[in-house]
Structures are given as structure tokens and as C-alpha cells.
Write a protein that binds this DNA or RNA. Sequence first.
DNA 1: TCCGTGACGCGAT
DNA 2: CATCGCGCCACGG
Length: 109
Amino acid sequence: MRDRIKSAIRMVPRGQVSSYGAIARAAGLPGAARQVAWVLHSSLGLPWHRIVGAGGEIKLRGDSAIEQRLRLGTEGVTFRGRRVNMRLHEFRFPMPSKSRPHRKKNTSK
DNA sequence: TCCGTGACGCGAT
DNA sequence: CATCGCGCCACGG
């Protein structure tokens, strides 16, 4: 299970972020946001700074929070006050099955 | 085995 | 926007 969470985390590209809950869902474990945090805390070699709370809020405390903010800034992530500008940096995991015809499809032009 | 804890999330107040 | 409460889930004591 940790592997599923880890790989989901590893999918988040540089310059983009995702949330604990989104990672959990992408890993097929909806509702396991706390476990995502736990994995992040107990595993090394993961792009941990790219994972923030819902709404782009940094959930770390003290120096760790500063470091995350710094690392993200290094990757070009912008903030809106205390949180990440999700509008611009939230990573969208590819849909498991079909893509969603938003409103107009006609891919076969 | 029960209980408290926590890098969570979300609706209600 | 700040808080609170409750649901969630794996760990450690």
C-alpha cells in the first residue's frame, strides 16, 4: 500500500504540487490522507515538498514549513499568501478510465 | 486489545 | 477567514 502511495507521490512533476487527499485517491485509497502524510514522514527519496494540504495550505510547522516553501519556490511554484496557488500548480492525475468530454469533444475533427 | 496521536479533509458555525 | 467537530486509518504504548 505504501508503494501505491509512494508511486502516486512520485508522479507529481517538478513545479507542480498535489494534496494528501488527492494522492490518496490517485493511489486508490480515498480517505487515506493521513496515511499519505505518514508515508511522507517515514520514507526518504520522495518529492515531499510537492505535497500540501487541501487548498494549497502548507501543513508543516516551523522550519520544515519554511523549507517546503523554499523548495517549492525553487521549482517555480507561486504562493497566494500562505498557500500555494493551486490554480496554477495543482497536478491533475490522469483519469483511470475514459477521459472526460468536458463540454465539447469532437476529437475527430 | 483499547486508547491516544497525527505533514488530513470538509462541512458547519 | 478562524475554529470546532467528526470521520478516517495505521502506529505505538
